[in-house]
Every structure is written in structure tokens, then in C-alpha cells.
Simulated scan of single mutants.
Amino acid sequence: MNRRSFFKWSGFGLVAAAIGGLGLREAQAGNRYYTGPISDHFDGKVFFNPGGEEPRGFTDLLRWQLGGGKIDWPKAVAAADFVTTRPEPRVEGSRLVVTMVGHATLLIQTAGLNILTDPVWSERASPVSFAGPKRNNPPGVAFDDVPKIDIVIVTHNHYDHLDIATLKRLIERDSPRLVTPLGNDTIIRSDVPRLEADVMDWGDRIEIGNDVTIHCEPCHHWSARGMGDRRMALWAAFVLETPGGKIYHIGDTGYAEGKHYRELKAKHGDIRLAIMPIGAYEPRWFMKAQHQNPEEAIEGFRLSGASFGIGHHFGTFQLTNEGIDDPPKALVTAMSAAGIGNDRFKGLRPGQQFEVPRAGA
């Protein structure tokens, strides 16, 4: 199989080349995105998961891609099967409404703030517009129907989470405040010099107004945008401390034996809502360290002690082997086995909303 056929066949191949660096070790003398002190998760050049696993390399990537087992997705969702929603302009006080746009893009509305996570309105999650994973469904909220955004959270720099084209549109329209882990601001500023960013390390906290505080917390993942920049920008989860309770948001993570969920509960106590990934997990031998499956997500939800949950990261871009409906089906099975009702944890489809009850309701 030649290189062109490999990229076309894989659906993930081109992006794997770009965001995975094809498994090449860092070739530069230093870090192109971030310079800072050595810590328990930064060795002076690259970031790492303490006690965790590095992403697999090019040989394993080829083994996966050439090994078969990929389930075909429909080329596009039929128009009758997708929903578009026009969110409220603002949600005040302790009300909490979350709208799924698609994949890891969610609109969180509470305390009079509009907060958008990992915004991607582009047609492809890719460094180029002509190849790479393509949207299987349109965004659940048309860009022109998105209310004025106050805060954008970018959890890490993979193309299905950090989309420069969308960030440019949002910044030109709304001038939001952007919150992101170390190094990602450098990537964005190269194309968006007007960026106003709060750059956070694990353990940092910032106050953003309206009695809302954002905490930057660990998760088990990795980063890269191109050849040779693997793990040169940090990845993170976030806790939003609001008047109506705490919201835990993870863009991408491996389960990592539940370590970070236990730490979350010990540090933050009661969580009103946990938003966590449930897709892009097959084959497990390749994906397990970096992408949790629905069963692991539900176990993490249980360990976190959160009152309610939302699953995301499925059904929009085909990145891995599982079928388009496999994550929500596996989620139902995992919830049933854990005794968690569908009123507590929802795998939202694009356009769907969840008005989250107050904890204990």
C-alpha cells in the first residue's frame, strides 16, 4: 500500500501523521511552544504523564492501520436524522444548560456566561481542507446562531480540538477570553495575534468574573500538531467553579486506572456535572492509554462522585475503528451495569441540550 492510499484508506492517516508526528521522537534542540521550569510533568523540553504511558509510535500505527477491523460509517447523516438548535442568549444564576455542537465542542451556559469548549465548525479535523476526517453531521448549532461567547476553553492541540479557522471566526466576532494549557497559546497566536489568553499549568486557577473560577487539572493524554513537536504543549482537564456548583470538563483522556478521577474528588469535593469523552477507543491495544471507552468513562464518573454527566467525542469525526453507534450503545450497557440511570448521564448528539438539575435534585 503506497503512502497516498494509506492516508485515503485510514481516514485517520493524514491527521495521525500531523498530530502524531508519525511516532518520531522530538528532533529539535528545544521546545518550540513553551519555555519554563522543570516540574513533575515537564522535563525541560516535553510534557509527560507522571507514571503514565507515552503514545505509541509509527510501527504500531502501521500495525493498526493495516490490521483491518475498521467499521465503515455512513458517508453522512440523513437530514431527517440531525437536529439544529438555537441556544438562549444567556442563562442566568445557578441554571446550567449544556448544548452539544459536535464531537468535543459544547456550549456551557451558566451564571450569565457563555463558555465554549474545543470549538470546531470546520468541515474537517485536519491540518488541510482537502483530506482528513470529515464531519459526518453538521454542527448542532449553526455558527450564526451561537450566542456571544465570553470564554473559550481549548483543552489541547490535536486538530479535532484546536481548530484555528474556528478560533479566528470567534475572536473576530466576539473577542472572547481564551483559556488553554501551557504552549497552546503560542500555536494559536501564530495565526491569531489578537488573542487574549489565560495560559494555565496543572494546579493553576483563575477568576473569570461572575463568581466563576477555572481550575486547570491533569488528565492522561498527549499533544502534537506536526512532525517532531510531540508533547511540546500541555493537555489538561478543567473544573469550572460556579455559583450553581462545579463542572468538570475533559476534552480527551485515557482512564489511567482512575487516578485523576480519585484526585478530582479528593481536591474538589462535590461535582454537579462531569463532561467526559466516550469515543475514539478502538482498537484498545492502541488507544487504551489515551482514549477511555464508555465503560471506563462510567467508572470514572462513579469515582468522581459527580451528580450528572455528559458523554462526548463520538459520532462526528471517524478517528478510530468503532462504528458510529458503538459508543452510545456501549454507554447504555455500562450505565445499566453500574446502576446509573439515563437521567444522570447522557451521551449527547449534535443539537441536543441538557438542562442539568441542581446536585441532589
Rank of each mutant, 00 (worst) to 15 (best):
G11S: 06
G11H: 05
L14D: 02
I19H: 08
E26T: 11
G30R: 00
Y34D: 02
T35Q: 08
F48G: 13
E54F: 02
R56F: 12
L61T: 11
R63D: 10
D72F: 02
W73F: 00
P74T: 00
V77L: 12
A79M: 04
V83H: 10
T84E: 11
E88G: 12
A104P: 08
L106M: 12
I108D: 14
D118G: 06
V120S: 14
R124F: 10
S126G: 06
V128P: 03
P139G: 10
G140C: 04
F143Q: 13
P147Y: 09
V152G: 02
D163T: 03
T166E: 03
D174F: 01
S175N: 03
P181S: 02
I187H: 01
I188P: 02
D198S: 13
M200C: 04
G203K: 03
G203L: 07
D204N: 05
R205H: 12
I214S: 00
H220M: 10
M227G: 13
G228V: 04
R230A: 14
A233R: 07
W235N: 12
K246C: 10
H249D: 11
G254A: 03
G258F: 11
R262S: 14
E263M: 15
I271P: 06
M276I: 15
M276T: 14
M276K: 07
P277E: 07
P283M: 07
M287A: 08
R302A: 15
N321H: 15
G323C: 03
G323M: 02
I324G: 09
I324Q: 11
D326F: 02
D326R: 03
A330Q: 13
L331R: 01
L331H: 04
M335Q: 15
S336L: 13
G339A: 12
R344H: 11
K346L: 13
R358G: 10
